[in-house]
Nucleic acid binder design. Structure first.
Lengths: 208, 208
DNA sequence: AAGTTGAGCTTACACGTGTACACTATTCTA
DNA sequence: TAGAATAGTGTACACGTGTAAGCTCAACTT
């Protein structure tokens, strides 16, 4: 059941996926990538594309899934770093910025398709971001002993700020990136401080 | 010097701009709008397009400019409302959400082109957002007597949060929008509180 | 060993695209 | 009022697109 044939197929499927990823750049979004171009880059005849995907959208959704996976691996990596000590916020931002540096095109894909024309794509990206937010929410809830609503609001705001900084980092040079990182860290501290503060006040007013 | 001719020309130029705006929707982004389609929608022959714009990009940049203008008018409107009393944050968010409701396609244009493939478009959108942020920064600095850095960080974070909420509102139903509005207001309060707090602390540590 | 399956190929087609070119008709200029 | 300028038109072209049809040949099944 090894399947020398299925194996070969999987291999050229990867070729297509990688070809698509390689063509993505600041100047080239997935939506203006043609089936023919991708097939050519993969070294295949255009029509062979259909042996693996029904259309470009199907390939695109695969890409989004993979991007989400990468993103979650990143989270795990960050958590490991945090366990070794250091500021949670600082380490998270650094880790995220390193991700952008190494996976610019993947991140661009997420950013673009989130506001793109395909409802399916938008949903897929938002799902990935939701996972990301939820993991952070859980973490905050446990680490800071906040109620669920407050920690969710904080997690959600933090993810938005970090993603937006990531988007800006894509076009930034080294110095700008450093400044951007500092700015982001301070902003996350605003949010964390405000969350603690307002949550405490609510507790007092509710008498618990 | 009235120029019956120049007048006519301006009129059909508007026809083109409006045609483009009308074709924008959740399913249709500017980048997959063709010159021929726009010309047809405007009731013109395809080649007449060139009498007004060199290419679609030029039309697109005009659109972005107009969108920015609308956005700034919005700010003024919000400030007027605020002067009549009420929570600054609440009124700002309400005003912004009304803008999204009424100008969904314009807002979509800004969102999409901010992460689009054209550097010129990206720059244009970011310029508009920067204006928007600066106005808010000035306001915060005066109203809350914060230092420039803190009020800038706060303004920047607030704009990011509000824009992101706007993006989500585009796909939301009435109930979701209400919830989204409340969430956003709370998040802006986090940021405002954190900014005040951390700014005060810095002042004390610096001994002034 | 014989027959079936399927990955990849070539060829072919209809369609939408941007834009060059030449033309008409109206407005502007002198 | 004669001539230049120009907004708008219709035709034409080359090009890239998605995809249908049918072929080959290696891998699978029985």
């Amino acid at each position: 059941m090894s399947g020398i044939r299925a194996q070969q197929k999987e291999k050229t499927r990867r070729l297509l996926v990688d070809a698509a990823l390689n063509q993505l750049s600041a100047e080239r979004s997935f939506s203006n990538l043609s089936l023919r171009e991708v097939a050519k880059e993969a070294g295949l005849a255009a029509t062979s594309f259909y042996r693996h995907f029904n259309d470009m959208d199907e390939l695109g959704l695969t890409l989004v899934d993979e991007a989400g996976l990468t993103l979650r691996q990143l989270m795990r990596q960050a958590r490991q770093r945090i366990e070794k000590g250091g500021s949670v916020i600082q380490i998270s931002v650094f880790t995220f910025m390193e991700f952008i540096e190494a996976n610019g095109n993947v991140f661009r894909l997420l950013l673009r398709e989130r506001s793109g024309t395909s409802p399916e794509f938008r949903a897929a990206v938002n799902r990935e971001i939701r996972y990301f937010t939820m993991e952070l929410c859980d973490y905050l809830q446990k680490a800071n002993k906040l109620d669920h609503e407050t920690s969710y609001l904080q997690a959600n705001a933090a993810v938005i700020i970090v993603f937006s900084a990531g988007a800006e980092a894509l076009d930034a040079n080294k110095m700008e990136k450093e400044e951007l990182t500092n700015r982001t860290i301070k902003q996350l501290r605003f949010i964390a401080r405000g969350a603690m503060d307002l949550s405490a006040r609510t507790k007092i007013m509710q008498g618990n």
